[in-house]
Design a protein around this nucleic acid. Sequence first.
DNA 1: CGCCTGTCGGCTGTCGACACTTTGACGCTT
DNA 2: AAGCGTCAAAGTGTCGACAGCCGACAGGCG
Lengths: 230, 230
Amino acid sequence: MSDIEAPLFAPIPRDDLPQRIARQLADAVTAGRLRPGERLSESAAAREMGVSRAPVREAARLLESAGLLVSRPNRGFFVRSVSATDLDAVYELRICIEAEAAARLARTGAASALPRLAAQIERMRALADAGAHVEQVDADLAFHRALCAACGNARLLGVFDQIVWEMRLGLVLIGRLYDDAHLIAETHLPVLAALRAGDPAAAAAAIRFHIGAAREAVVDRFRALEGTTA
Amino acid sequence: MSDIEAPLFAPIPRDDLPQRIARQLADAVTAGRLRPGERLSESAAAREMGVSRAPVREAARLLESAGLLVSRPNRGFFVRSVSATDLDAVYELRICIEAEAAARLARTGAASALPRLAAQIERMRALADAGAHVEQVDADLAFHRALCAACGNARLLGVFDQIVWEMRLGLVLIGRLYDDAHLIAETHLPVLAALRAGDPAAAAAAIRFHIGAAREAVVDRFRALEGTTA
DNA sequence: CGCCTGTCGGCTGTCGACACTTTGACGCTT
DNA sequence: AAGCGTCAAAGTGTCGACAGCCGACAGGCG
């Protein structure tokens, strides 16, 4: 894939306390134990995990860079609370990022990336059958992440990784993603077809259409959700 | 502007030690005392500034989020070293970000933002006359940042802020930006004209052309620079 | 009864200290 | 002479502790 010299050995997984803590924190959010807008007490978290506050702080900074947390001076970290307006902005950003990624990928030849992309669609189908909507969200995002990863521009992937948490938060908050969970898997197919054909313009148009449709559906549903709770 | 009740008092500028430290560190980089690829010893910095390592660490994390520093486990922080490939990727990202921003701005009406944009172009002209190329780079980036800020999508601005340091590093490394410093100011004008006309497609095309031209010139020059030093 | 003020608990921001890792240099072996 | 093992210095990762700040609650005044 990339032309790095020799992947002879994998790096040893160092202890990396902050990263393990960050994973726990993120899991707490996905599991619903920490809800959007809620405060994350670093002292309490440190106490419960049996570590000092320093690595917890480091982990929180990591998750802040990832977009899951936001920090307020002298008040600590809060789980990012997503609004419909935020989600709409994120979708717009995704559209222009991923359209570029798709065009690039189609231009440079997507052969090596196609299997992975197709696999994620297949996974989405299976998870839709199983009715596992949270995992389906993961598969959906994994497809789009793979697209950004394969396009050859590392910065595009970096941007995607920075908004992926916000997407996740929004999508799991909605609950069931679409009225028809199976439809979402199928709407990825035109993108794949355009990539396979090596047509940059078609690939960009396909992803624009795909994300645009999702944007409309998700933001509408989210607005309705906000109307009931707020 | 906003319909908040009473702006009687301005908020007191809290000490915010990390931010002041971050500014010093950033200044050290722009002044050339810390060069790309060089290591930033947080203990030494803390000693020299007369503070503990904790706020220095915090400041470094801030600058890492801003893209100025990168951290390596157990080895601390390093000033980001930009390559021609990196710069090319950043330019590509900028093109799709700013094209979207320009189109949005043209669509929603750019009247309120036009004076600020025009002012930056004027500043570029003046600084080109004065031969102050570092400040001209700042004015150039300020123009593009204002574009992203005015478009109404906060995430676009966030992405721009994350790559602006890499741009700065690359541009100041080149030294003289173009063969003709005056030309760069003028090439911004078509963007402004399209915005004033309220033509989204033209605005996007103008910014694509403008950044694309800069991309080619800068990356070529940077490649030549790399060939001589590496 | 409602608003403001004083107090209190908890928390973050910052600090100095210690252990482990990294790194560069020196000396030894082949 | 080149390479490996050892060692010391420097620096980061982590820890516990203290000061200042924030939010909440109770009490006083209009």
